[in-house]
Design a protein around this nucleic acid. Sequence first.
RNA 1: GCCGGUAUCGUCUAGGGGUCAGGACGGGUGGUUCUCAGCCAUCAAACCGGGGUUCGAAUCCCCGUACCGGUACCA
Length: 495
Amino acid sequence: MIRVRFAPSPTGYLHVGGARTALFNWLLARRHGGVFVLRIEDTDADRSSTDMVEGILDGLRWLGLDWDEGPHVGGPYAPYFQSQRLDRYRTTAERLVAEGHAYYCYCSPDAIKTKREAAERTGVAWRYDRTCLALAAADIAAKERAHQARAVRVRAPERRIGFDDAVHGRIEFDGSHIEDFVILRSDGHPTYHLSVVCDDVEMGITHVVRGDDHVSNTPKQLLLYDALGAPVPRFAHVPLIMGPDKKRLSKRHGATSVIEYARQGYLPEAMVNFLALLGWSPGSGDQELFTRSDLIARFALERISGGNAVFSVEKLDWFNQQYLWMLAPDELSRRVQPSLASAGLWRSSYAADRRDWFHAVLQLLKPRAKKLTDFVQLGQYFFADELVYDPTAVDQHLRAEGARDHLLAVQAALDDLDPFDVRTTEAAVRAMAESRGVNAATLIHALRVALTGRTASPGLFEVAVLLGRHRVLARISSAVALMESSSAPPQSHPS
RNA sequence: GCCGGUAUCGUCUAGGGGUCAGGACGGGUGGUUCUCAGCCAUCAAACCGGGGUUCGAAUCCCCGUACCGGUACCA
């Protein structure tokens, strides 16, 4: 039975890199009918908070990565918060000392820091000098009597140590580079190495899938597995996600939190598809779009790329657009609702008697939308009573020669058109253009600005019909009024 | 500095001793058209460098270089 875990430390929101690591773990578990454990690594109390924990859980829920054991759901190895497991780490550390795998170190962090800095100045690679390993029994007794603070260090053997990584293959380290590292701080808190290994062992984790930044920690943890007499899991170190400048992805590259992408109108299914293909590929075939079950069926650690990958918002946008288009009308309207609501443009009738109309509008706008939030801007003239005129558009098409008369004529023609549909409105406008001796485009452009306030929109006649005769006529009047009221200083809008 | 990892179009990648080095995003051009988007067609764009091994290397080996990560009583 495969057991994997995602073990975030709640010092921030769920980062896209963490999200992808979680996704890979989840895919592996689902692929093999295993268990996906969520464990919170909050041993660093200063930097952790319960708000952050919930933020991370929200991110995972949004992506649809459900965990089988962990916060809220519990499980046979509860608790799943490391801050509630501190006694186990302490006990384990004591056990390692008792068995001779570790020893107490009374050196103060400051003293060590001083030594290290001195060593670095002379260009020598620093390792803890084992001062306390050499302590005589009497010295130790004296320090104990004085209640001197002590940390626990592992006694690192001088042998080559390596492992077979699922993505990188064999990775080996020379023991001479591994120092006697601290596993239990003098305040009784474990360091990362101790807590991960303890928990991974106790929770029966079979595969450790984590970021590449952990490869150099692995030999130390291998030592711990060995000292504990525990079976070593299979490791898979997945490459990091970078910004467009190839630097570690950070806020200055844009959003890094998955929840931020949710807010920006991205769909979780698009994010999952995008993230899955960032550093992983199913191999054969040119397919880019994968459903969740496709991904589960094809996922394999061995197909994860070895190199870092650049996060491309452009490609994410494309995925999002693809998934947006696949949404059924009802589903699309349900998902667009929050964006419209926060812009103050949502009406409950859109889900009731005006449902069909609303669906038709979304359908018309859809090819122009990449994100859910795009519908706010794209559909402003459908959803708001007050039209927002783009000054450039007004200058260009409304203040044009004869525009006023053209619009008035079109208005009259549309007034008693029956029926009022795409075919009839188009025919009427084109006929009007011909009788007035102008290009149909001239009338269409002016009319578009009058109806939408802008130069770009879906097909003008589709827009007109969905707006409805009443609003069309009214907006033409408003446009004419606008021309008359502000005709004196035509285009005097500096800056 | 030391240790570890990685190197195929701008980006994500497929491939892997003999291929026209394939796809996708993005970009260019043309078409459709009332604008925008979309759609259709089409183009440009890559095997980090140097040595080997081999009939043949992008692919295997070595050496460089670049980039990324680590080098804590952070995780």
